[in-house]
Write a protein that binds this DNA or RNA. Sequence first.
DNA 1: GGTAATATTTAGGCGAATCTAAAAAAAATA
DNA 2: TATTTTTTTTAGATTCGCCTAAATATTACC
Lengths: 225, 225
Amino acid sequence: MKYSSSKENYIKAIYHLEQEEPVVSTNALARQLSTKPASVTDMLKKLHEQDLLEYEPYKGVRLTESGKTVALQIIRKHRLWEFFLVEKLGFGWEEVHEIAEELEHISSRKLIDRLDEFLGKPKTDPHGDPIPDANGKMPLIEKICLMDLPTGIAADIISVSNQSADMLDLLKHYSIEIGTRLEITNRFQFDRSLQLIVQGKSKITISEHLAMHLFVVYAKETGSK
Amino acid sequence: MKYSSSKENYIKAIYHLEQEEPVVSTNALARQLSTKPASVTDMLKKLHEQDLLEYEPYKGVRLTESGKTVALQIIRKHRLWEFFLVEKLGFGWEEVHEIAEELEHISSRKLIDRLDEFLGKPKTDPHGDPIPDANGKMPLIEKICLMDLPTGIAADIISVSNQSADMLDLLKHYSIEIGTRLEITNRFQFDRSLQLIVQGKSKITISEHLAMHLFVVYAKETGSK
DNA sequence: GGTAATATTTAGGCGAATCTAAAAAAAATA
DNA sequence: TATTTTTTTTAGATTCGCCTAAATATTACC
Ligand SMILES: [Mn+2]
Ligand SMILES: [Mn+2]
Ligand SMILES: [Mn+2]
Ligand SMILES: [Mn+2]
């Protein structure tokens, strides 16, 4: 089945919002898609007709299985293209999302499978988010927000939830990227800022605002090296 | 300036049709775009408003300079993507046109310039057609239809004007591809078929129908080797 | 030149995706 | 609980790209 770019954007947005809250509201969608609630209602009715989501007026929506399948294919395409842009074309982190937002709507299935192969079947996109495989399976990585990492436990940066140029700037300043090993050494209650040891060497202090957008997994090897 | 996919398809179609006849008719466009003449008239009026073409009712159209510039950018994108699909993703000749028909509408200028670089700034697409450079300059290659090649003169296949799977099949059968050196040794008047020597070795006879879709340039080196 | 055939445009309409303004339902709160 | 606020839906329009049918202009031909 082939859906319009607009419909695909709705489906993907719903998928992402469902990760936060089990049922997605009209307003939340309108905000996410920079559109008006009235437009959202219209579209929800159409997507419901196509059995992509469960919808009852005033009750919010959730994707059906079929809707989720579609969402995962779009996310797969989006993330593979982002990987391509960064790894093959040398784009910066922060530039790729917008372009992938268009590329994700290219319809050829064969194209995306070949691209996947060409890229070496990557597991995650440049921001650390997992890439669904050809069957739409996406490994559930239980990532922890850096704010929630206990003090004194080594962990590796696995993803970032903001890919603005400003964010990238700051990360570069602190020499933090995907895979960086770090450990919280101190928490300052006043502004909830964190003191960290990065890569076993530099000691830095970062804001709560930044920490909220960083996600980690517990370190596998008890990182000496 | 950013134009809809639909508008871009019109502009490109007009550009191509202009190569055949100096002024493009409503019907020719409708045929090319698989749409109806009435729809074409609608669109021509819009494109005219945007100064992309000269249009007076009943008089046909021709692109303005600005229209040609847009056309060449789309053609550049189309052909670079085709090159990418064949050379990097291993697609066959005949499969790429349709996919490129979508990819050519991705808007990022930076994307296409990076892609160009990544591909090694190729001069021609997989069908032998020249790729406009970043400034929209496209080398004018004076190609000759194989039907018009004089007997006994060596020439190289430079492009094909049909990229169907059937065509590819036949070319494979005769071991003809872009770059193949050949020479006409005989013309049969009855069905206008041609006898050729291919690559100095095999003698074959091809139909007028096939020859009409093959284009050559005179051989540079007087091909012994 | 007049008539028939062909090409093109106009008129009117439709579906998709959006919008604003108003109505209605649900949720929050006094 | 009654009232206010917030959320959501409905009503009615607009733009885009397309369609069919009808009108009109151009061209071809007797
Ligand atoms: Mn992204
Ligand atoms: Mn998108
Ligand atoms: Mn092509
Ligand atoms: Mn196209």
